[in-house]
Design a protein around this nucleic acid. Structure first.
Lengths: 226, 226
DNA sequence: CAATTATTCAATTAGTTAATTGAGCAATCT
DNA sequence: AGATTGCTCAATTAACTAATTGAATAATTG
């Protein structure tokens, strides 16, 4: 039977299992990718710049911590987030880091300075404009991530398809692009390319999680655009 | 200038700094202690069962991650939580662990089975009883933790002073003891001792943080008990 | 000023972790 | 049945981490 000290040590070892899961930059990146949509090992490896073996090892650590689960689909193992509380936790961990670590702001500002000026979008105003058809919101993540959940009213236009589908975008209206969140570069690239072609394009920093956390609507339905 | 990949790697390394801070069981214990009240290195070392040097090293890691800060008070360095968001984060991390790791429940149930039956306390009912003077809530943490913040209406009675102050406790009324939270044993011990002396004692699992998170009142004022 | 107290730092040691590599396994395809 | 694909496992290596130990530093006390 445990002494009081042994009990505390064992309990904190358990809590630390969550910490050990999220102390690796690569596992954090994997978790953020899985918060967008379920993915297999090869896709995760490619998107997080890992070998397949290394990605698999990181996924075993995450599974052992109860943060993800995997199921076989033919040759592929599809990994998904075990519970939406994991995504909430990751977002809060990121929020804490943003608040306590000045280096994050420095790194971000330095990186954005090398890209065209991207003014913040007023979210309430954006909602009004989308509703009244005066602006278009495009989701430039891969289609499977859009399908898994997207900002209500947004249209899927993965970055790789942008040039091929320009005819679907209005020249006169503002176009707002978003992707996986504040530290994803897909929307930055989309805005730069659109502006280079004289579209009125803006970047929304929020990803789906951030948007939802603010109380705005996220859906899985593909709404017809008129 | 960073490439996109370099930018992501640097950003996730920053987020991982929070993970690296909380991946150690001992640092988690230190953080939970500091969430109760600011403390010096010797007290933290003693309460977390660490050498002073080791406690100091862990505190440097936590400070480097922006989670705690220290200031000199004579010979002593008083460490405190840098921002209340840290305590919120720790509580949420614990919540995630409780939800995803079955081992926690197992360890806790096994430990509690070695102690007298402790029925859960209905919190709304407890509030009513305290207000109407039909129950007494005692805080059995050290006095400095009580002073830093306690459940409104509670009386400070540190465990080490329990026997000496029995005359202050009513025999006929229910007595509810609480301490640092669900995994602290101080209240368990207090209830056991009180029951052994025929007091009607119960344990409240919540600590101050949990109580406050439920929307109940926490205060620093010592209210006169009548 | 010397002694004491509290804390921090640096070196060391043992253990842990991340990435790589190659082998092994399961499922599918030919 | 053999080849291929996707994934996992285990061994290895280099880097990192936690605890210990002893020295150094800062502040207080006598």
């Amino acid at each position: 039977m445990d002494t009081d000290r042994q009990f505390k040590d064992r309990i904190y070892e358990q809590f630390a299992r969550i910490g050990k899961a999220v102390c690796s930059p690569k596992r954090l990146e994997i978790l953020e990718l899985l918060c967008q949509a379920p993915k297999n090992v090869e896709v995760l490896a490619q998107q997080a710049n890992l070998s397949v073996a290394n990605a698999s090892q990181h996924l075993q650590v995450l599974r052992s911590a109860g943060m993800v689960e995997g199921h076989k689909d033919g040759l592929h193992v599809i990994y998904r987030i075990a519970d939406s509380a994991v995504c909430t936790f990751i977002m809060e961990m990121r929020g804490l880091a943003e608040r306590q670590l000045a280096e994050i702001d420095r790194i971000t500002k330095t990186f954005l300075a090398g890209h065209i000026g991207l003014e913040p979008v007023n979210r309430g105003e954006l909602l009004d404009r989308v509703r009244s058809g005066k602006a278009v919101v495009i989701d430039v993540r891969p289609g499977d991530e859009f399908a898994a959940g997207h900002i209500a009213g947004a249209v899927s236009m993965p970055l790789g398809e942008l040039e091929a589908r320009l005819s679907e975008l209005p020249k006169g209206k503002p176009i707002v692009a978003y992707c996986r969140g504040p530290y994803c570069v897909l929307a930055i690239k989309a805005v730069e390319r659109l502006r280079a072609m004289n579209y009125k394009a803006f970047r929304l920093e929020d990803g789906v999680s951030e948007w939802q956390a603010r109380g705005f609507r996220v859906t899985r339905e593909a709404e017809m655009r008129r």
